[in-house]
């Protein structure tokens, strides 16, 4: 599904990713871990097409399509979803309005009929319930005045509604207490399916207790320096990252 080949990318002239390779197949959950400054968040932002995150070499395809040929909204319509590390506030624009616009645009791109208001509302309410968000949140401005946990749950809620095929979670666990973490993980687990893949970017092993990955990769200095199964995460938790960095050096 997602195929990353020797990806080199820079942010404001500074090279952050230095030849990254990753292959993700449908149904798989990949965890990407690594120390601060390794380029974890850069990866998500480059894939989603954020401005100032420039690819300078390598290829990335999503189901065979070169994603760098696509605008961010086209990548979204192709089924890529990025759960933001720092969800953005948009005052005055209600969640509902925002989600409807999003679903309408994606449906249009795919040439399918957008759900009518009634069934959309129904789905939206269900999604809220699934992540323990009060339905009033739908009427409030996008992330406006939300607590940190509410913002993250709102990201998962959006993910449920948009039904993407590739979900990238960018440090979704950071700043969450255990309760909120469980809610987020539950949402993600409910979405797991044979034709959907996840890339879970995290600094802490803790999240992986709840979202159990098929593969764990360690990102250090812009490259994947070690890959393994879920047990690698536990090892990292115990030993930290420094031994790996030394190993690479």
């Amino acid at each position: 599904m997602l195929s990353i080949n020797n990806l080199v990318a820079e942010v404001e002239g500074k090279t952050i990713l230095k030849g990254l390779n990753l292959e993700v197949k449908p149904g798989e959950v990949h965890a990407i871990m690594g120390p601060n400054g390794a380029g974890k968040s850069t990866l998500g932002n480059v894939l989603a097409g954020r401005e100032n995150y420039e690819k300078t070499d390598g290829t990335v395809t999503l189901d065979g399509k070169d994603i760098f040929e696509l605008e961010p909204e086209e990548r979204a319509a192709e089924g890529m979803f990025l759960a933001f590390q720092y969800p953005v506030e948009i005052p005055g624009v209600s969640n509902l309005e925002f989600l409807k616009a999003s679903i309408d645009a994606i449906s249009k791109y795919r040439g399918v009929e957008a759900p009518d208001s009634v069934s959309f509302m129904k789905k939206a309410r269900e999604a809220c319930k699934a992540v323990n968000l009060d339905q009033n949140f739908l009427k409030r401005g996008v992330n406006e005045g939300f607590s940190g946990g509410e913002k993250k749950r709102n990201e998962i809620m959006q993910m449920m509604l948009l039904e993407p095929k590739l979900c990238i979670l960018d440090e979704t666990d950071s700043g969450l207490d255990i309760d909120a973490l469980q809610v987020v993980a539950k949402g993600v687990n409910e979405l797991r399916s044979p034709d959907r893949a996840f890339v879970v970017v995290t600094h802490y092993q803790r999240l992986l207790d709840y979202i159990v990955p098929d593969y764990v990769h360690v990102l250090a200095d812009g490259k994947i320096v070690k890959s393994g199964g879920k047990e690698l995460a536990l090892e990292l938790e115990k030993k930290g990252y420094s031994w790996l960095e030394q190993e690479v050096a």
Binding site: A48, A76, V88, E97, A101, I103, A105, G141
Partner: peptide
């Protein structure tokens, strides 16, 4: 804000008009 909207599939013009309306 623009990037969030785009990441959710909304084209830039629509995104601006939504934000302005808000």
């Amino acid at each position: 804000q623009m990037f969030l909207c785009q990441q959710r599939g909304i084209d830039p013009e629509k995104a601006v008009s939504m934000i302005v309306n808000g």
